[in-house]
């Protein structure tokens, strides 16, 4: 099968994946119990609950709700928020999404860098260094994000006072909005103070999330390196007197391909971590948005954000698969 055909099929497969995910969201949000009662709590007067139910379109029969729900989503209609601002849900999501993107991209870079460095070291050197690399990968996996984030806040924010403990920029230093990604916007605006301020705010959240996620890459790269270094062609290289640095480079290249697949799988974990990191650092992204909107009993906003996460995950996984197909010609289409 040709590469483009594989890509086409992979892209088309997004539709059933999305259908499954959206149905799961629907089942969870509408069929387990009454979402409005769950959010308001039992104390609210019945007429308030009834009017909120009507606003959210929950008083129709379930199959009609399901059809409406799918139709609206596929036409890009996420509804209007039910609390505070009464704006289109998609607008509210788009306000928050760049912050989540900024955090996840930064954390992703941190995790891959640390993971590669430690993994390659452990796989190459073995011995005591390898053991400490393994311990690092286990400990970082077991770290609880809010706790680790608080430790960093305590050290760098409270005792050393060199880094801020929350938010995305200092007061008055928020850059004008072009992309919503502060580090990028401040560069576009050409304001160095703003850039430094947003970078400083990004460091602790990105380190927290990045370090917690790095262990998986450490482990994978270490194991791949050991596998590859044990193969016969490496022995042949050594026999021919090829330098260590060339062998190292060669094995890193080969060890890296499976890491790409892991990046796709890790993406869901990255987003899960982002929810906790955002809450810990008062980072105004999608994670904090969901938590806030649940408090406001904003059913449509919560549903919209959850659906948005589903679409986002599905798309990223396709992209990773396609990149993988390009890089590894052995992939079975």
């Amino acid at each position: 099968m040709k590469l483009w055909k594989y890509i086409l099929i992979r892209v088309l497969l997004v539709i059933p994946t999305l259908l499954v995910l959206l149905s799961v969201v629907f089942i969870v949000l509408r069929m387990i119990g009454d979402p409005i009662t769950a959010m308001v709590g039992m104390k609210a007067p019945p007429n308030v609950i009834a009017s909120l139910r009507e606003e959210a379109g929950l008083n129709k029969p379930l199959y009609e709700q399901y059809i409406d729900y799918l139709y609206n989503l596929f036409t890009g209609n996420f509804g209007t928020t039910m609390a505070v601002d009464h704006r289109p849900v998609l607008d509210v999501i788009m306000d928050r999404f760049p912050a989540t993107l900024e955090l996840t991209i930064a954390a992703f870079i941190v995790s891959v860098l640390i993971g590669m460095l430690t993994g390659i070291m452990g796989g190459w050197k073995r011995g005591k260094l390898d053991a400490s690399v393994r311990i690092y990968s286990i400990v970082s996996y077991a770290l609880f994000i809010p706790w680790f984030g608080l430790l960093l806040q305590l050290v760098f924010g409270v005792y050393l006072r060199i880094l801020p403990t929350g938010g995305m920029a200092d007061a008055g230093l928020a850059p004008p909005r072009y992309t919503g990604i502060y580090v990028l916007d401040s560069l576009i605006a050409g304001n160095l103070d703003m850039f430094i301020s947003s970078l400083k705010h990004l460091i602790l959240p990105a380190l927290t999330l990045g370090i917690v996620l790095s262990g998986v890459y450490t482990r994978l790269l270490r194991n791949n390196m050991i596998d590859i270094l044990g193969q016969e062609f490496i022995l042949a290289y050594r026999a021919r007197g090829i330098s260590d640095s060339k062998i190292l480079l060669h094995s890193i290249k080969n060890a890296f391909i499976p890491v790409l697949t892991m990046m796709g799988l890790q993406f869901a974990i990255l987003l899960t971590g982002a929810i906790l990191t955002e809450t810990t650092f008062s980072w105004p992204g999608l994670g904090t948005m969901i938590v806030e909107r649940i408090q406001y009993t904003d059913y449509t906003a919560v549903q919209g954000a959850v659906v948005f996460f589903a679409i986002f995950v599905a798309i990223v996984n396709v992209i990773v698969d396609i990149i993988y197909a390009f890089l590894d010609p052995r992939i079975s289409y």
Partner: peptide
């Protein structure tokens, strides 16, 4: 397998939050 893989790709904590919220 398809259904399970789809759920597997979804951020687990978010799913757990929503279910926990609905169940109380």
């Amino acid at each position: 397998s398809f259904v399970m893989d789809s759920i597997y790709a979804f951020p687990s904590l978010l799913l757990a939050i929503v279910i926990a919220l609905m169940l109380g």
